[in-house]
């Protein structure tokens, strides 16, 4: 018996059970406005997935991507297409009951994975030209790809085009969002402590030296793009099935920018930093909503504040909150860094 597989499956079962427990607990808490807090918590989760997955591309592999929203859109629309046009009508023909419930969960998981796969393929396509580009050129190209994807979606009438797609089944919930939060964190954590992740890091540190050590830099850049985009696609799928509505405007490059701010604030390359930053920024954002109302602002101050955070961060602490370390490193004996 392959006991490592058994161990991982058991781990997943435990995580799932805990998440189910928490979601019942959250549903039970009898305070007013709990629905609102629930929404914030789910938004945090989706943003964590975005930030951690972008961190694989930007932080670990060092490829400055500005097209994350595009991959998210691909995943969102692919999975919504499946559930809206195929799974939902099919489920409606079945009788209520635990069987239908289980099937719905399974189909939703399938739709999310399909969305992730579609986004991963898009990431592969974007990753390919990136092999010849460095830094800022890549930023522009990924941004351009994100825009191309958006324009394409605008032109596909079947999925709503510019009108958007409303009535996406409400399959996503706390459980699914945090299930994938756990998965993306574990995957990214294990990757970076493996040959694959070290190759990412080598590419980030010095491409010429990496090639000299036998690292096929192209291959790993593309791989980082595919893995990162896969999870962006999952995040998109979760978002669509949570908001029960999709619209190309949700995936403009301001969305990519938000993800970048999270990764940069957390410290490029730090997984726990990305998580931390996603939590901080999402909560801060909710706070800003009140600021906006209190001051009667006509426009959203969020982007302005993001911008200022980013500029100040580059001046005062360019390595972000955690640098390229993880939270745990700060509790262990400080390792002879020079910071």
């Amino acid at each position: 018996m392959r006991n490592w597989l058994v161990r991982d499956l058991a781990g997943i079962a435990v995580i799932s059970a805990v998440l189910v427990g928490i979601s019942y607990f959250l549903g039970w808490i009898p305070i007013p406005g709990m629905a609102y807090y629930n929404r914030v918590i789910v938004t945090i989760g989706i943003n964590i997935i975005l930030a951690v997955s972008l961190n694989i591309i930007n932080g670990h592999a060092g490829q400055f991507s500005m097209g994350h929203a595009g991959f998210m859109a691909v995943g969102a629309y692919t999975s919504a297409y499946l559930t809206y046009f195929h799974f939902q009508p099919f489920l409606a023909t079945l009788a209520e009951g635990p069987g239908r419930f289980a099937l719905q969960q399974a189909l939703f998981l399938g739709a999310l994975l399909a969305g992730g796969a579609a986004a991963g393929i898009a990431g592969w396509v974007v990753g390919l030209p990136s092999l010849r580009l460095r830094g800022d050129y890549l930023a522009i190209v990924t941004l351009g790809f994100g825009e191309i994807i958006r324009v394409l979606i605008l032109n596909i009438d079947k999925i709503g085009g510019a009108r958007g797609l409303s009535g996406v089944p409400a399959f996503a919930n706390f459980f699914w969002v945090y299930f994938f939060v756990c998965i993306v964190i574990i995957v990214s954590w294990r990757l970076v402590r493996s040959q694959v992740g070290r190759a990412f890091l080598a590419v980030r540190e010095d491409e010429i030296a990496a090639e000299a050590m036998g690292v096929n830099t192209t291959h790993y850049k593309v791989q980082a793009f595919v893995i990162g985009s896969f999870f962006a696609g999952i995040a998109g799928g979760l978002l669509g099935h949570y908001l029960v509505y999709l619209n190309p405007g949700m995936f403009q490059f301001t969305k990519s920018f938000e993800a970048i701010v999270m990764v940069v604030l957390g410290g490029m390359g730090s997984i726990s930093g990305s998580v931390l930053a996603a939590v901080i920024l999402t909560v801060a954002l909710e706070g800003l909503r009140f600021v906006k109302e209190a001051f009667g602002l006509t426009s959203d101050p969020r982007m302005v504040i993001y911008a200022i955070v980013l500029i100040l961060l580059m001046r005062l602490r360019p390595q972000g909150l955690l640098g390229n370390r993880e939270l745990g490193d700060f509790f262990r004996r400080r390792k002879g860094g020079d910071r």
């Binding site: 500005m66 800022d136 930023a139 490029m268 580059m314």
Partner: peptide, 18 residues
């Protein structure tokens, strides 16, 4: 260079949303 690039992006957003 990445710091300048990120600053440029930040500045751009500052001007747009400002």
């Amino acid at each position: 260079r990445i710091a300048s690039l990120i600053t440029a992006i930040g500045l751009s957003f500052l001007l747009e949303y400002g």
